[in-house]
Amino acid sequence: MQASPALERAAELVALAVNARLQSGGAAMLPLEAADRQAWRPNCAVANCYASGAVGMAAHSDRMTALGPCPIIASLSLGATRCFRLHRTQRVDLWEGAGGTGSGSPHDTAVAAGADVVRVDLQLAHNQLLVMWPPTQETWKHEVTKTSKPFTLHKRSGATRFNLTFRRMKPGWEHRVPTCRCGRPAVMKAHVPKQPIQQQQPTRQLRYYYACESDGRTKASCGFFVDVPHVATLA
């Protein structure tokens, strides 16, 4: 689908903000994200609408099937202020440059609050940009919480919040996706330890797998599962 001029302009401004952070040395792309030796530029945007406090998004990590491991994802909030909650799923050794204070990464808050922080709540206001630096998708789940409590309304949209999530789909990754036994493309996810956060040992290696995924309504998983050869190393 062709993007509108307004969306193209928004993507340009988001890219400027992300690349300014990268060029300042306050954050870093992992080797796979930087493999083409070009500045970060989104080529995909996902829009969500939260019409009221009764509408939310359950905890999840974004699919990496077409993004590849350790993507940069930039989320632009428009309208009412809502709570964006992150839950840590895996402990990793944070490397220098992964996202310094003020980058909008949950890792910044984790460093400030202590290595064992397992939940981060952010109140995202109108026109605020949250950048999820790598390896956020591998080590955290995020959600927009439902609420019956008062929250800050927007003068034009009222209780409605819109969200534009910008990301870069990497050429070639969609061609690697295997077909599961039920005939549909598998999805790529990161391995997450079964132990609670407090019992995990920090790691510098992230591993991935392809699996069949239920849609929660009409499609049950066929049980397909295969490990991805690629391992992302945090160094």
Rank of each mutant, 00 (worst) to 15 (best):
H126S: 12
A112S: 08
R161A: 02
Q123P: 01
V131P: 03
T139M: 07
N163D: 07
T152L: 12
H154G: 08
R167V: 11
S157I: 09
G104W: 04
K149Y: 02
G102Y: 04
L130I: 11
T136R: 06
P134I: 10
D116G: 06
G114K: 12
P134N: 09
H142Q: 13
E143Y: 05
L153E: 11
F162V: 00
L124E: 01
T139Y: 03
W140Y: 08
R168D: 04
D108W: 06
D108A: 15
V131F: 02
L130W: 03
H142Y: 08
R119M: 13
L129I: 06
F162N: 00
D108Q: 14
R168S: 09
W140P: 02
S157T: 15
S157M: 15
T136P: 04
T152V: 14
L164M: 14
T139Q: 03
A125M: 08
R119D: 06
S103P: 02
L153V: 10
F162C: 02
K155P: 01
Q123H: 13
T152W: 02
R168Q: 12
P134C: 13
A125F: 01
A125T: 11
D121A: 14
T165F: 00
A112I: 08
L130N: 05
G104A: 10
S103F: 00
L130T: 11
G104N: 07
W133V: 05
L164Q: 09
P134M: 13
T165L: 03
S105Q: 06
A110R: 13
V131E: 03
G104F: 01
V111Y: 00
G114H: 08
S105D: 05
F151T: 01
S103A: 04
Q123Y: 08
E138C: 04
V144S: 06
H142R: 13
T109W: 05
G104L: 08
E143C: 15
G102C: 11
A125I: 05
R156L: 14
L124A: 12
T136H: 05
P106D: 03
V117Y: 00
S157Y: 12
T165C: 03
S148F: 03
W133L: 09
P106K: 01
T136S: 14
L129Q: 10
D108V: 10
L122G: 00
K141H: 12
